[in-house]
Write a protein that binds this DNA or RNA. Sequence first.
RNA 1: UCCCCGAUAGCUCAAUGGUAGAGCAUCCGGCUGUUAACCGGAGGGUUGUAAGUUCGAGUCUUACUCGGGGAGCCA
Length: 436
Amino acid sequence: MFQGHRAVSIRHLNKHVGEEVLLQGWLYNKRGKGKLYFLQIRDGTGIVQAVVAKDAIAEEDFETAGQLTQESSLRVIGKVVEDKRAPSGVEIQPSRILLVGKSQNYPITKKEHGPNFLLENRHLWLRSRKQMAIMRVRDEVLKAIRDFFYDRDFACVDSPIFTPNACEGTTNLFGVKYFDEMAYLTQSGQLYGEASAMALGKIYCFGPTFRAEKSKTRRHLTEFWMVEPEAAFYDLEDVMLLAEDFVSYIVGRVLEHRHEDLETLGRDLTKLEPAAQTPYPKIRYEEAARMLVESGDETFVPGEDFGAPHETFLGNSFDRPVMVTHWPAAIKAFYMKRDAANPELALGVDMIAPEGFGEIIGGAQREEDLGLLEERVREEKLPEEAFRWYLDLRRFGSVPHGGFGLGVERTVAWICGVEHLRECIPFPRMLYRIYP
RNA sequence: UCCCCGAUAGCUCAAUGGUAGAGCAUCCGGCUGUUAACCGGAGGGUUGUAAGUUCGAGUCUUACUCGGGGAGCCA
């Protein structure tokens, strides 16, 4: 409340045409001088223009308008009027303009900036039109994830962030002092997710994960968010159906609710819309490998994992995400179940996004047999004592089960059509960068 | 860890080995429909650091520092 006025979000101004409202926000840009100012005001939900004519407002308020600099915070009381010249269809005719907090020499200007400068000023960069749009899409993705699982009786059961041991090797782990011993920041909640699934049947965990990979590419962060559903009695096919329902639901929600932001981002919707429809194409590793070889790619070695250019090729071969299954067991994790028809193959599935955005999902049916799993733990020379609790899950009512992990930032990058993951998380953590 | 590229005004970038410049931002002035508004003026520099070549280095060489892109690994 301010002087008897209730603040209205810019996003909802079109419901208040003809009314006098209170706006609270920051000055995005100012044009004009002399007897007329155009103030572009943002409040996080949108941007609206206030037209300040000298003869239509108190002299004191006109002077205030003249003093406003980029990113000064302000309150405006004014009338909402329709105007075809305004980009949003409405503009404000202010009767009062009040400066709340001055802004001097705001560093991010209207012209271009380089990535280093923008990342050094990430706390201010977030105020830019494109960054706000990405954050709103990210918010829609997070909400869609929660809704999707809630509606399907998956309980959110989060995994710990401090872990005593590695789940897939130790070289990529961040170690931290945990009182008198060493702990690691989680790189996946999956093993705990499996335990939770044996309790609640269908679960997901959702939180930040950490990988100390020395990767300096636009596809990597050292801290990123991952959502990992895990379900008892799910086989590989169930996992794949869940994955395509899930991703198509998220894309559909963003298309439905964040159309304006996608427009701000200049996203080509014709390339995104097919991903809102199922089914998704499903191919075996063998077939994907054949496609690569037939394409004349000489860098791909059959039997080995796909590199980034190979993922790009496979992703670009379809109009929506493609799922690749039945991988050589040698290149996949120890906990994946082997194919009954061919024990050389693992029942894993990766989902690759189109347009070169790469892998967004990695999942699998898990090995539920105690003996086979113990054998793998020994083969991979994993610390057996650390996996005692995990093996317990196979001792007490083991069932077929499976799940997957979806990288939130990669998904947001793909949906937004943004090249670099650093723009898809509020404060990116990368190799050699932890400020601000 | 490896490969490639870069570092010049607050920001983005120019400058054949020969007087260091523009746009934006800032400050001053003009404009009642601007859309990264426009027009006129002003201030603003140890060219990342250190050494070397040269009559002369922002420019050439070497090392270092920082950053960007990519490989590997992965979501």
